[in-house]
Nucleic acid binder design. Structure first.
Length: 463
DNA sequence: CGGTTTTGACCTGCGC
DNA sequence: GCGCAGGTCAAAACCG
C-alpha cells in the first residue's frame, strides 16, 4: 500500500475529520447537558433561597429583614477575607452568614465595663485590615466570635425574637479536625495566639484556646485538645471567618478547601430532593474517605468533623482507585457542583505548592490495597501514574490541608441560605496525618490546666 | 522590649 | 436560685 499517495492521505484526513466531528458533537452534547444541569441547579437554589427568605420574613419581625438586606449589600461589596478565595456565588452566602452573625451580635452586645475596656488595640485595626470597612465598632470587635455569646441574642436586652437566637446558634458553625499528631498543633498557615486553657470535663487533657493573630480583630479562634481515649489524637476545632487575606501557605489550601466546602454545603442542603448527600463531599474531594463518611447530630452548633485518624498506617495509606475524582460524568452531580472544574486549578495550584512538602508521602504510598470503591467516574485516568493525582492524593492526606479545609468549611457552613438546620455534618476523611510544629505557639508540655477555679490545678501536658 | 504564654478570676448559659 | 461547665479576660511571667 502506498502510504505516500496523496489520495490515500486525503482519505485518511477525511476519516480523521469525521472522527473529530463526531467527537465535537459528543462534546457539544455533553456541554449542553452540563449547561442544562447547571441551570436547573441554579433555579433550584434560587427557589430555595426565595422560600427561605419568605420564611424569615414571615417568622420574624421587622429589623431582621433589614439586617439581612444590609448584610447582603455588604457582601456584594466584596467584604471578608477568609473566604475571598471562594468563588463568588458561594462566597457571598458564606460571608452573609458570617457578617450576619457579627452584625447581630454587635447589635445585641451588652457587655459590662470589662467588655468596653478590652482590646483597644484590636479596635484600631478591626476595620482597617485589608481595606475592608466592617461594621464592627471598637466595642463591637469581639462580637465576631463567641459561641457563648450567640445564645445571648435570644434573651439579651434587645427585643429580638427567640427564633432569631436559634438561627444565630445554628449559624455558629464549627469545624473539627481529628488527627494523629505528636505536634502541639497542626499547621494551617495561620498564626495563632493562645489566650486560655481549661480543663474540659471528661478529659484529663486540657483544652487550649487560640485566637488568630494574623490580623487585628480577626474573629477566628480555635480549640486544641487531645482525645481522652487516645492522646495521640489531636482535636482541633475552628470557629469563625478570617477577616484578612490569608498567607500563601493558607491561601491555596483555603482555596481548595472552600471549594470542598461548597460541595459539603451542597450535601448539607436539606431540600435537595435527595440529590445531595453530605457524604458526597468526602467521596468527591477526599475519595479515600468514601467508606467513612458519616453524619451525626448532637452539638448545638453545626459542626463538621474531619476524622484523620482512621488510616491504619499513615505512611502506607491505601491509594483509592481514583486518586482524584471529578464528578463530571454524572449529571446528578453536575447539578450539585455548580462548577467543579473550578476546583482543578485550585487543587493543582496547591498541589504544586505542596509538592515538595508531600514528596515523602508520595514516595511511600503504594498502589495496592485499593479498598475504596469508585463513587464516580474520573476525568483523570486512575490507572495511570498521574503525578497530579498523586499530589492531590498526598494533599488530602495532610492534616494541615484538612485544617485549612476545616477553616474554609467553617466560614461557609452556618450559612442561612444553606439551611444547616442545626444538623451536624460529620465528614470522616481518611487522610494521613503528619507531624507539624510550625506554629507560632510554642508548647513545651508545661501547660497547666486552668481549672476554672473549681478544678484542681493539676498539670497536664497539653500535648 | 514587644509578643506570647500562663493562669486565676470572671462571665454566661444551662440543667436541676 | 444554685451549681456546674465552657469560654474569655487580663495581669504577670516568660521568651527571643
Amino acid at each position: 500500500m502506498n502510504f505516500g499517495n496523496p489520495l490515500f492521505q486525503l482519505v485518511v484526513l477525511q476519516a480523521e475529520l469525521e472522527r473529530m466531528n463526531g467527537e465535537n458533537r459528543r462534546l457539544r452534547d455533553m456541554l449542553n447537558q452540563v449547561k442544562n444541569n447547571y441551570n436547573t441547579l441554579q433555579m433550584h437554589m434560587m427557589t430555595m433561597m426565595h422560600q427561605q427568605q419568605q420564611n424569615q420574613e414571615s417568622g420574624q419581625r421587622d429589623g431582621k429583614s433589614e439586617e439581612v438586606k444590609h448584610q447582603h449589600h455588604n457582601n456584594q461589596n466584596g467584604h471578608g477575607g477568609g473566604g475571598q478565595v471562594v468563588p463568588r456565588q458561594f462566597m457571598d452566602l458564606g460571608l452573609a452568614a458570617s457578617e450576619a452573625e457579627e452584625t447581630s451580635q454587635s447589635s445585641s452586645e451588652g457587655r459590662s465595663g470589662r467588655e468596653k475596656s478590652r482590646s483597644p488595640a484590636n479596635n484600631t485595626e478591626a476595620g482597617s485590615t485589608c481595606g475592608i470597612i466592617r461594621e464592627d465598632s471598637p466595642e463591637k470587635e469581639s462580637p465576631g466570635w463567641g459561641p457563648n455569646k450567640i445564645p445571648r441574642l435570644g434573651n439579651s436586652s434587645t427585643n429580638k425574637p427567640a427564633d432569631q437566637a436559634t438561627e444565630a446558634t445554628m449559624r455558629k458553625a464549627r469545624v473539627s479536625v481529628r488527627a494523629r499528631s505528636e505536634a502541639p498543633m497542626i499547621t494551617d498557615g495561620c498564626q495563632w495566639r493562645k489566650y486560655g486553657q481549661k480543663m474540659a470535663k471528661g478529659n484529663p487533657c486540657p483544652r487550649a484556646y487560640y485566637r488568630c493573630t494574623m490580623a487585628a480583630g480577626c474573629p477566628v479562634r480555635k480549640q486544641v485538645q487531645r482525645c481522652a481515649e487516645d492522646r495521640t489524637i489531636l482535636i482541633t476545632t475552628y470557629e469563625g471567618t478570617h477577616n484578612h487575606p490569608l498567607p500563601p501557605a493558607a491561601m491555596g489550601m483555603a482555596s481548595t478547601t472552600s471549594s470542598a466546602a461548597r460541595m459539603l454545603l451542597s450535601g448539607s442542603m436539606p431540600s435537595a430532593d435527595g440529590l445531595m448527600n453530605p457524604n458526597f463531599f468526602a467521596r468527591t474531594l477526599l475519595p479515600c474517605s468514601s467508606s467513612m463518611a458519616t453524619i451525626s447530630a448532637s452539638a448545638p452548633f453545626p459542626t463538621v468533623t474531619l476524622d484523620l485518624t482512621q488510616s491504619p498506617n499513615p505512611l502506607q495509606f491505601p491509594r483509592p482507585p481514583n486518586p482524584f475524582q471529578v464528578p463530571f460524568s454524572n449529571p446528578t452531580h453536575n447539578n450539585i457542583l455548580a462548577n467543579p472544574a473550578a476546583l482543578l486549578p485550585q487543587i493543582f495550584g496547591q498541589a504544586l505548592y505542596n509538592q515538595s512538602k508531600f514528596s515523602g508521602l508520595q514516595s511511600s504510598q503504594d498502589l495496592e490495597g485499593q479498598q475504596h470503591p469508585s463513587t464516580m467516574s474520573s476525568s483523570i485516568n486512575p490507572s495511570n501514574h498521574n503525578p497530579l493525582a498523586d499530589t492531590v492524593n498526598a494533599l488530602t492526606s495532610d492534616p494541615n490541608f484538612t485544617a485549612a479545609l476545616a477553616a474554609a468549611i467553617t466560614s461557609l457552613i452556618g450559612n442561612p441560605g444553606q439551611s444547616n438546620n442545626g444538623t451536624n455534618n460529620t465528614i470522616a476523611t481518611t487522610t494521613t496525618p503528619a507531624n507539624n510544629n510550625n506554629n507560632s505557639v510554642t508548647n513545651n508540655g508545661n501547660n497547666n490546666s486552668n481549672g476554672n477555679n473549681k478544678v484542681a490545678n493539676s498539670s497536664f501536658p497539653a500535648n
